[in-house]
């Protein structure tokens, strides 16, 4: 599974980081990026889906 945060949509709510800190990094301005090029380690797929489903800006997509 691979995911990506759209930097044009992300507004820094940080819900993804709160739900799945293993999968996202957030910079000092709130912009979130998927770690490891968006590759989701096996076993963390549900967390990735949870992050996608809770983003208020619909900024996270599964590639």
């Amino acid at each position: 599974m691979r995911i990506r945060v759209d930097p044009d949509k992300c507004q820094g709510h940080a819900r993804c980081y709160g739900l799945a800190p293993e999968l996202f990094d957030v910079d000092d301005y709130g912009l979130s990026t998927a770690v490891d090029g968006g590759n989701v380690p096996p076993g963390l797929e549900d967390k990735a889906r949870l992050a996608i489903a809770n983003c208020p800006e619909y900024a996270i997509e599964e590639l």
Binding site: G12, H13, L50, N54, E57
Partner: peptide, 23 residues
């Protein structure tokens, strides 16, 4: 609640700048 795209901190470019602190 697992699906919760709430907008308590707003939505768009004015998302509450202090949301991490408030939480």
């Amino acid at each position: 609640r697992a699906l919760n795209r709430h907008v308590a901190f707003g939505s768009g470019i004015h998302r509450c700048a202090g949301s991490n602190l408030a939480r």
